[in-house]
């Protein structure tokens, strides 16, 4: 089985974050949609405080489902966690509503931005503070968000539906920040954005992580960018974690290069080879 990637597993934490507290731990969860469709078949992962943890994999690998299982947006899509446990700061959070989780500091930024189109950018940001009671601090946080995303300040009075894709992504991240989160579950921030904007957004994610101490669990198809900014990575394939390790190690791994970065020892591979490779792999898997 030459083309089957070797399963290798790390110890769940990047070397530089070794002594950090683990905020979120997902233990062997199984997710079923509509009572029949098994999507996750035993996913485990850990998110340390102050780290950026990447969840990688192709379409349908289960990245979004994992995030939604954590934030509990699954329920509104008729999905449920049938096995395993999800702990946040040691507390089981499977039965909490999304708003309970937001109050505990876990918020999801959904794939495809999902801004409130007919609300202005500023109103969008303010909806992020829905669960908070401390009115005075909300105004300060609005300024903080604007300092990270000056573009949003320029457009604060325009309807979010009429802003550009990059601005909408910023709006969605800013909205999440308004809840004063401890952990942001960020789903596919690069989707549909120009490479330059992707760099800009990831740069902001990095500085939020470093300056504000926000932890990120990041689902991303763009393996290259994600591994450059993350501390630790998990690679999902058809609902299972097939490999995990510190981002640096993953970047160097031959299989990851082959399957996800489109590189091999001989340099860049032609697309035709990659495709046949992937197809045969499915057969064997």
């Amino acid at each position: 089985m030459l083309d089957q990637p070797e399963e290798t597993h790390g110890d769940g934490v990047a070397p530089e974050l070794k002594d950090r507290e683990v905020l979120l731990s997902v233990n062997n969860i199984e997710v079923i949609y509509n009572h029949v469709i098994l999507v996750l078949k035993g996913v485990s992962l850990a998110v340390p405080k102050g780290g950026i943890t990447a969840l990688l994999g192709g379409n349908g690998a289960g990245k979004t489902t994992t995030l939604k299982a954590i934030s509990n947006l699954l329920k509104s899509e008729r999905g449920e966690v049938t096995k395993g446990s999800i702990l946040y700061r040691g507390e089981r959070v499977q039965h909490l509503s999304p708003s309970d989780l937001v109050e505990r500091g876990v918020i999801q930024v959904m794939e495809g931005r999902h801004c409130f189109e007919h609300l202005t950018v500023e109103e969008n940001l303010l909806t992020g503070s829905y669960t908070r009671k401390d009115r005075a601090a909300i105004a300060d946080d609005l300024d903080l968000v604007y300092s990270y995303f000056p573009r949003l300040k320029e457009r604060r009075k325009s309807q979010a539906g009429y802003t550009s894709g990059g601005e909408q992504q910023m709006c969605a991240i800013g909205r999440a920040l308004m809840s004063r989160p401890e952990t942001i579950l960020l789903d596919e921030p690069s989707m549909g954005l120009a490479p330059q904007l992707v760099e800009e957004i990831f740069g902001i994610v990095k500085s939020l992580n470093e300056n504000e101490g926000v932890s990120f669990l990041l689902a991303e198809q763009n393996t290259n960018v994600a591994l450059r900014f993350a501390h630790y990575g998990y690679i999902l394939e058809s609902g299972r974690v097939v490999m995990d390790g510190p981002a640096k190690a993953l970047r160097e791994n031959a299989d990851v290069k082959e399957f996800y970065l489109g590189m091999s020892d001989e340099g860049r591979k032609s697309f035709r080879d990659v495709r046949s490779y992937r197809r045969r792999k499915r057969w064997l898997a």
Binding site: S99, F116, T127
Partner: peptide
């Protein structure tokens, strides 16, 4: 009002409203 804004947010996008902690 805050509740009014939540109401309009829900009108725009149920899922996103859920994700920021608004109770549908």
């Amino acid at each position: 009002t805050k509740q009014g804004r939540a109401m309009r947010a829900v009108a725009d996008d149920h899922q996103a409203a859920l994700s920021v902690g608004i109770s549908l």
